[in-house]
Design a protein around this nucleic acid. Structure first.
Lengths: 351, 351
DNA sequence: CTGAAAGCGCTTACAG
DNA sequence: CTGAAAGCGCTTACAG
């Protein structure tokens, strides 16, 4: 592969001059520039980014460590991150932690070794020493979706409180009183915050959240299935299951179907995270939608601000409730107090 | 960040010795080794992969350029690619072409600039000069899923011919005679091969495939919707729509639902690619499943073989038909000639 | 077993 | 405007 030396020889100039024209440095004669460009063209020369990075100490690359690529929510997040990064002149390399702390560490380490300019992470756990050290050592970092309290790192996330409250109001209106939740890992902020928001909303409506109605999941489908089976085995099973993410909702669906039960007649289901398939499931699933694309873009902007020396900003964007049919139709249970208009199935929460 | 020089100073040896212990070179005294390791620990030293790559001319990184990350099929492919690569000591950086040739080129160029050791690609089109030049210039490359004819690059893919034939047999048995397909771009092998396999299978059953029954999609949901609407507007609409990938099936579902039509009563639907959600749609969707994880792993093995100087092998793994309810139940149409047992909804094609 | 030195492909003060 | 030279952080023949 042609190097800068070859180009210099071909153009009859020094490598310094070649470097200058390649980097748009102003002080190059038109003649030299033309000869260099011609040589570049003739040799099909492409600068070696590895060498450049070693010299400039920047890779124009962002690392993104997410908890689970197979989760459509994170896939979409990754996509919007890449788009915004590309627009700002950065590449992104993705590490999939698969909800496993040791895999998360593997990726953080690899990314750091490659000297990425900054790190976007959605932590799988409370934060490993490796990650915390990197943050303290000054590696530009921002948390996205999930975060770690007590660390001085900007956070870009959705605020689901109002939407969860809207969901509980919706369930209450339909006459449901015994509600259960499939929670995410307590070590993650999204894991604990969603349970808390749910508990608070229930309290507001005078409803209890007994321990047997809190199932411990891990944000993956299999755990949703397992927890749902336990719910169904209860002497007094819940009337509603709220899955704290879309994959656990998929697992719950599997479990319900395996028992030959029907939604919402036998049991109602709602999910945190909205995905295109929820429109087509049997029945369509009521969900809380995050502004995923916006989150990804905001996270990149915050990280690049940090990298380029501008003060980065934390962001919290409101999630919103999307009512479908998996919790019952207004009128099926207690008469609806404020019926959802059939024409507009999307109900926005007021931020 | 500590460099190898700092470690050498701390340990009281030369950088050469530090390098040797880090790389497991045998000729280092136990004493020197111990001192180096202690210094590494004390300083929290991590080798700079950028510098190492420049020197050794290898990055231990694979590039993966896929057509669309948001497609669950490719997400799963990417995941299995990363797993196998990691097992073999490589990282992978993913480029999402989003079915856009110019984006594909952008990623190929970026990856090449970064001097990845090898490239895995699922081409979005017939192949750009950039990609073909890279292949000719000797960049280790393997095609996965889609490929480009006439280029000397190993191919790892699924063979869907038998499964498509099984699907058509299934449809015929159910009494369907007027079948349509939402095809992928003709410039992609999967785009054209699936239409061809479908056409051949139809011919075998004496069924025509008129031009109006071939809709041109681009493997993304929106095109599935558009094409389906056109089918539905036909004076004599098809009885079955076969979507050549799962996203176009999603679009078809949207279109059918928007018209208030029911599946399979008003129109039947089948898809190439199987995904977990197909079990839960209304109704569950009959699909052709690819051995996605196996494809990803085989592709990585082929590429690494090529990189490390072993002869790489092309691979074609059989896809299989998974019968669900979206095309009707046996007995609904013409009496089933060989009914699908209700107990086992999964029917394997014989390779 | 060990170290001094060259060199990977760039960029960038420094002189001119 | 231009080039010679230093140096980024490593690895690896080459001598000893």
């Amino acid at each position: 592969m042609a190097s800068i030396k070859d180009v210099a020889a071909e153009a009859g100039v020094s490598v310094a001059t070649v470097s200058r024209v390649l980097n748009g440095h102003p002080s190059v004669s038109a003649d030299a520039r033309a000869r260099v460009l011609a040589a570049v063209e003739a040799l099909g020369y492409r600068p070696n980014a590895v060498a450049r990075s070693l010299r400039t100490d920047e890779t124009r690359t962002l690392g993104l460590v997410i908890s689970d690529v197979m989760n459509p929510y994170f896939t979409e997040l990754a996509r919007s991150v890449e788009e915004e990064a590309r627009a700002l002149g950065y590449s992104v390399v993705i590490g999939n932690a698969d909800e496993r702390p040791e895999l998360q560490d593997h990726h953080v380490r690899t990314l750091l070794d490659r000297r990425i300019d900054g790190l976007l992470v959605s932590p799988t756990d409370g934060g490993s020493p490796l990650m915390l050290d990197a943050a303290r050592a000054g590696t530009p970092m921002v948390f996205v979706d999930r975060w770690i309290p007590g660390v001085d790192v900007p956070v870009v996330r959705a605020d689901g409180r109002a939407a969860v409250r809207d969901l509980v109001a919706h369930l209450h209106r339909l006459g449901h009183r015994r509600l259960a939740i499939i929670a995410g890992p307590a070590a993650t902020t999204t894991g604990s915050e969603r349970v808390e928001a749910f508990r608070e909303a229930l309290a507001e409506f005078g409803l209890p959240l007994p321990d047997v109605c809190i199932g411990q999941g891990d944000f993956q489908a299999e755990s949703g299935r397992r927890v749902t089976e336990r719910f169904l085995d209860l002497p007094e099973p819940p009337e509603v299951v709220f899955a704290a993410d879309n994959l656990m909702a998929l697992g719950a669906l599997d479990a319900v179907r395996a028992r030959g039960l029907r939604i919402p007649d036998d049991i109602a289901l709602a999910a945190f995270d909205d995905i295109p398939w929820f429109v087509h499931t049997d029945p369509p699933i009521t969900a809380i939608a995050q502004p995923t694309g916006e989150l990804g873009r905001a996270a990149v902007r915050a990280l690049v601000d940090r990298i380029e020396g501008r003060p980065p900003q934390s962001v919290a964007l409101p999630a919103r409730l999307v009512v479908r049919r998996s919790c019952g139709e207004p009128g099926e249970g207690t008469p609806a107090q404020s019926p959802v208009p059939a024409q507009s199935p999307v109900q926005r929460s007021k931020p």
